[in-house]
Design a protein around this nucleic acid. Structure first.
Length: 494
DNA sequence: ACCGGTCTTGTACAATTTTC
DNA sequence: GAAAATTGTACAAGACCGGT
């Protein structure tokens, strides 16, 4: 189901920001790296044997992974101009300081890291440098750690200590360029699949971003209680992590296609869905709160953090009841779902029957001619050209295959119902045991498989304790998963 | 025109198959 | 038996697009 996208999101697209992303290794260094000495046949066989057991690899992230949102990058450049005042003023008046506590104070930090000079934390960096920083390598405008406040709060009604989360989005929407700081509150949901807190727990654990050094497992997080008179205990992030993105662009597209939806479910669908559901179930005011908390409420200076939190948390708890609506939403989307469909569902015969693409054929001929019967081109004059052709061929083939996959999907979804009808009529009343087959979960990484199992097949009526341990388990799996990626799956030669 | 996205192209890396 | 080619995962970043 949809879970796979969640898994994918968490596992595959983490930015592997090194603790100090500063000294940028010259790219070439990595590439110059010599090829390892060739192995003997025996060694190779041994290695092959060993690799049979390998089901996952460590992700190989770029040194300086950035969020890939073109619009934001453009804004970055543009923001060097006058546009920043708005934001700066907001920060200056101290409105957010109590809630977003150490953020403001830490604002001038990258510089220290960069030069390696240990500036003391109270020293002030001139405005100019600040602006420069923001332009160049300040925080990305994606969701960063500093935008997320995870905390244990006392439930206003039950008095229980529960996890809650405030997420601040500055540039989340708007027809103009103006930042619209908006704070969303979340509490844990009973349906683990939709639980935002689960993710926010797992990612920092995998990153080691919690300020509390001995905080290393999800179960510890769930254990934290409010001690003494406080009713809110926020988890702080390590300073290094404040300006780093929590997660980058998602990769839901292919995953949801894999799950057999006719159209990929994207963030848009979620958003639209959420709005629709709220429209049906809640008065406008509540909907507005759900979609966008008025930024003004956080701007007053007099209130204490606890007041704020409490005020808004009540609304957050209200939202909880909408969870069921979300389930409904997925049901609605799922009407057109066909579990038999997948990303690449082109049958063998079709692949085999595929006529030669004239363009590709031409390129291949060209290459063959260039190679002139030789196999090894290293050092020859034609080497470069042959490589170029090889690349071109590869690209063309990839495009072609992709087009075919898409075409076939279209074709399938269009015709499938007709085929079914025809078949039914042909077979008369021959009762077909209508398979509501859940596609089996087949994932290489054990953590991913287990997690999928938990999220997809979560039992409905768990008691508080069981739910809690399941939640813990899920968070553990999720954070482990962050450090693994799938190996490539080789199919039989086509 | 701009925003918030998606699509496409290009790159690296590693495992595997093909070719000579 | 090793070089060359191909394949699949993943990341980067510009191109492109539809809605307002």
């Amino acid at each position: 189901m949809v879970a796979s996208s969640v898994l994918k999101m968490a596992a595959s697209t983490r930015p592997g920001c090194p603790p100090h992303p500063v000294e940028v290794q010259p790219e070439s260094n990595k590439r110059i790296k010599k090829k390892p000495a060739p192995l003997s046949a025996k060694q190779r066989a041994a290695l092959r044997e060993q690799l049979k057991e390998v089901h996952f690899l460590k992700p190989d992230y770029a040194d300086n992974t950035k969020i890939n949102i073109a619009g934001i990058l453009r804004k970055w450049k543009a923001a060097a101009g006058g546009n920043r005042d708005n934001e700066k003023k907001k920060l200056k008046d101290g409105s957010y300081e109590d809630l977003w506590d150490d953020r403001v104070r830490n604002r001038d930090e990258e510089d220290t890291e960069e030069t390696g000079a240990a500036l003391d934390e109270n020293s002030h960096v001139p405005e100019g440098i600040l602006t420069q920083e923001t332009e160049g390598r300040g925080r990305p405008k994606a969701l960063c750690y500093e935008d997320v406040l995870l905390m244990v709060v006392r439930h206003p009604e039950t008095g229980e200590d529960v996890l809650a989360m405030a997420v601040k989005l500055i540039y989340y929407k708007g027809a103009d360029n103006k930042p619209k700081p908006t704070i969303f509150f979340f509490t844990a949901t009973r349906r683990l699949m939709f639980c935002p807190i689960l993710v926010i727990i797992s990612l920092p654990l995998a990153d080691g971003a919690f300020a509390a050094l001995n905080l290393t497992s999800p179960s510890q997080i769930f254990q934290i209680k409010n001690r003494g008179p406080v009713t809110c205990t926020p988890f702080r992030w390590k300073r290094d992590w404040l300006k780093r993105p929590i997660f980058p662009e998602d990769d839901m597209k292919r995953q949801t296609l894999d799950a057999g939806f006719e159209d990929a479910i994207g963030p848009k669908a979620f958003r639209r869905g959420a709005a629709n559901v709220a429209n049906g179930n809640a008065p406008d005011a509540v909907r507005d709160q759900m979609m966008r908390h008025d930024p003004k409420w956080a701007t007053f200076n007099s209130a204490s953090i606890n007041e704020k939190v409490q005020f808004d948390l009540q609304n957050a708890f209200l939202d909880e009841s909408l969870e069921d609506g979300l389930v409904t939403l997925f049901t609605r989307i799922s009407i057109m779902r066909d579990p038999r469909a997948s990303y690449d569902m082109v049958p063998e015969e079709v692949w085999n029957a595929l006529p030669l693409d004239p363009d590709i054929a031409k390129l291949v001929t060209q290459r063959t001619r260039l190679k002139n019967g030789k196999y090894r081109m290293r050092g020859t004059d034609q080497e470069g050209e042959v490589q170029r052709l090889t690349k071109e061929i590869k690209k063309k083939r990839a495009q072609r295959n992709k087009a075919l996959r898409q075409e076939y999907r279209k074709y399938y979804f269009h015709n499938r119902p007709t085929w079914d009808i025809e078949r039914q009529l042909a077979e008369g009343a021959a009762e077909e045991l209508e398979e509501d087959i859940q596609p089996p979960i087949q994932l290489c990484i054990p953590e991913r498989a287990q997690l999928a199992e938990i999220l997809c097949h979560q039992p409905d009526n768990l008691n508080a304790n069981d739910l809690r341990s399941l939640r813990t388990k899920a968070a553990e799996l999720l954070s482990t998963l962050c450090n693994k990626k799938e190996t490539a799956k080789r199919k039989v030669i086509r």
